[in-house]
């Protein structure tokens, strides 16, 4: 089976084709190694980084942005969002602070500094 994939690793957006044969993926059209890896993952185990925000409970109208440290399986995006929605933090928050441990094999961390 041949799959047409648009690479999302960088803004070039290369058009890739991936041919899957017994679990082995043959990639064409990539202009870099990361593109090849992306197409392979996209066929076998597609993943995405999820970014969202979490309410800062001790500050009015204040949100801290967060992300998954590593991409999570694409099929788990909405479950990850549910977990993130349930989280709450107290200021001060620093970039890299762990907000949620162990979300589909990775962590959710803060991506913004919030002063007290």
């Amino acid at each position: 089976m041949i799959k047409n994939i648009t690479c999302i690793i960088c803004p070039k957006g290369c058009s890739l084709t991936a041919e899957i044969n017994e679990g082995i993926v043959c990639v064409n059209g990539n202009t870099c190694e990361r593109g090849k890896q992306y197409a392979t993952d996209e066929c076998l185990n597609p993943t995405r980084t999820v970014t969202s925000m979490v309410r800062v409970s001790n500050k009015c109208n204040c949100m801290v942005s967060v992300k998954t440290v590593k991409p999570i399986p694409k099929g788990k995006i909405f479950e990850t969002m549910e977990l993130i929605r349930g989280a709450e933090v107290c200021a001060p928050v620093s970039i890299g602070d762990v907000i949620l441990e162990d979300v589909f094999g990775t962590q959710v961390i803060a991506t913004k500094n919030i002063d007290r």
Binding site: I9, P11, S65, V66, K67, I95, T111, K112
Partner: peptide, 25 residues
Amino acid sequence: LQQCIHNGFGLHKLGEELTGPEYAS
């Protein structure tokens, strides 16, 4: 950048994929 909480910033310039607030920081 403060409101651009999605990732994809900095691949060319910093060699890593950051969110907007991280790139700003």
